[in-house]
Write a protein that binds this DNA or RNA. Structure first.
Lengths: 163, 163
DNA sequence: GCATACTTGACAAAAATGATCGGGTATTTC
DNA sequence: GAAATACCCGATCATTTTTGTCAAGTATGC
């Protein structure tokens, strides 16, 4: 599993979608404006999300995207896997036991790490994130949910290492 | 924390170094040949590792690199942090509580993930990896420790997602 | 000492990826 | 038909990853 900003964008967009789909399909243009992600990029991401059957699309006026499953059946891991396409075959995947010692010396380490991360991300559902988000909104009831300049924070180029 | 091939290369190289430093400084040329990582790239990585005081350099003939600390005092997290320099300031770092809800909607998620990954990687020392590696070598006692074509496996471009 | 070979160290170029921009087409609602 | 929307594609810019080139330092043989 790979952790980059791409997955972060995708998750952010999915949360936005989850928060609004009760009012019908959500347009990418809306997500783009609210979250400060370029429309083209969202199109690419949602193309992948759709092909992985995490979202459904509705064309025409009033159209947009909706989630394909309930929020508690979509995990963060699902989203990240969908947009990050992990170039399957090219590596000595979990199956082959990497004879030729030096090769894949770090195999066990990485597959353990992978596993841990995956387990963690798979344990976090969109539902729980949405709930978190709702709680925050509840604290500041009348603030409008339009934040154009969210970019500085959301679009940052890399994860931060922290102790 | 960011997970890319860069960190993977660095860890692989550090294990190679740990396995051989008993015979004196280890050259990057050697690591390059054995692990299939380009010399220039290793030079960059080891520049960072040196500046983070994880390795020491010895110039001139017979020179090379040695570890700056005992293998059980160097964690995988140390190595990855060293080569990945997390562009500190640009983001809304852990301190600021990201008011303006939509902004950093996923803040908690990512910082939790970060924390988990970091804890895991910090718990894995170079010593434990070396020991693992030694055990494997022990099973195939007479095989020469020269594996030119390790690239196919080690150089793959991304982590694999796996359940 | 001095040349020479071995090694790190630093800078620049190339390749790959991430992200944006602009155009177009298909589909649906009105 | 007109407008709103997804969908697709190629071009472009920025960033990151990877490789290439050249310099600087240092031990060794003479």
């Amino acid at each position: 599993m790979r952790l980059t900003t791409k997955g972060r964008f995708a998750v952010t967009a999915m949360i936005d979608l989850a928060l609004r789909q009760s009012e019908g399909p959500v347009t990418l243009a809306g997500i783009s404006e609210r979250q400060g992600i370029s429309l083209s990029y969202l199109e690419q991401l949602f193309g992948k999300l759709r092909r992985h059957e995490l979202v459904c699309s509705v064309r025409g006026p009033g159209g947009g995207y909706t989630l394909a499953r309930a929020t508690d059946l979509i995990s963060v891991a699902d989203v990240i896997i969908a947009v990050d396409e992990p170039l399957d075959a090219t590596q000595c995947g979990g199956k082959e036991d990497c004879r030729d010692e030096g090769r894949c010396m770090t195999h066990d380490l990485w597959s353990n790490l992978n596993k841990r991360m995956f387990e963690y991300l798979a344990s976090v559902s969109l539902a729980s994130l949405v709930e978190q988000q709702r709680e925050r909104l509840a604290c500041k009831p009348h603030q409008e949910i339009v934040f154009r300049e969210a970019r500085d924070c959301v679009s940052v180029a890399s994860f931060e290492a922290q102790a």
